[in-house]
Amino acid sequence: MTRAVARRIASGAVVLWAAATAAYLALLAAPGDIVDSLIGDGADTPQIRAQIITEWNLDRPAVVQYLDYLWRAAQGDLGRSYLLQRPVGEVIGDQLPPTLRLAVAAAVFGVVLALVLAVTTRHRWVRRASSTAELIIVSTPPFLIGIVLLSVFSFRFGLFPVSGDQGWAALVLPAVTLGLPIAGVLAQVLRDGLDRALDEPFAVTARARGLTERAVLMRHALRHSLIPAVTLLGWLTGALLGGAVIIEQVFGRPGLGQVTLQAVGNGDMPVVLAVVVLAAAAFVVVNTVADLAYLLIDPRLRRSTS
């Protein structure tokens, strides 16, 4: 058991290092250098360039800068933001909680809605209507969903405030906007899983034992259909982080999405690297949770690993 945990941690660390390195190389390969980005569309003279280079120690070879970055990162020092002139840890620390709140609320909403949809829309035409609606939601840009929800529920009826991270009321619309496409995809996957499970011989056996169709669905088939859905947890994390960029912009919410967008646009390397490492860490955690969830859902896997 301890060996398994140690292996997990070690592989997690390797993933983080690989992500940081890949991001570092990508930024290095991107056209234009950091000095260009910092100058932006402002005045550009050799003196200004020289000062920026001195300020950020950019005159050292790329390898030295990279090793220095790794050494500091390992000690928990993520550096200073070129653009915001504040420690990166502080920038990320300020913006992480609102994004987490949004992501958790959206995930919970999306998962619950998907389960409800998959289980309740089993009849022919309801099922077709739900499935069509899900496909429409999944193929609509979240930006548009957000604007429509805002126009109706905030601007027209004044039920929810538009902006900011200010209590539950302000969280409803962004979480729904971010959660709807997730519900759409998950509901499709779950429904597909239910269909397949209900065709299996065990379903026939269960029915033969006199179980009601509802009991077969809830107690047996649902468990089977969860396995492919859990596999999507990694995708879910990506959808939440990527979606947050747009949702936060539309709703004027603070959060990592805004910070990331600004950092990428301005070549703010320390912030971009920190966000990449954070996202990689989120994936490692989520995948670990997914692996544990498999064991919980499917007893057969528990036997084969022990």
């Binding site: 604007i147 027209r156 004044g158 538009v162 902006s163 900011g164 912009q249 539309v250 004027g252």
Partner: peptide, 18 residues
């Protein structure tokens, strides 16, 4: 001063009195 980057959201926030 609230930062609302989307123009249509700013206008909506004004017309709805937020």
């Amino acid at each position: 001063y609230r930062f609302l980057k989307e123009p249509s959201v700013r206008v909506g926030a004004l017309t709805s009195g937020q």
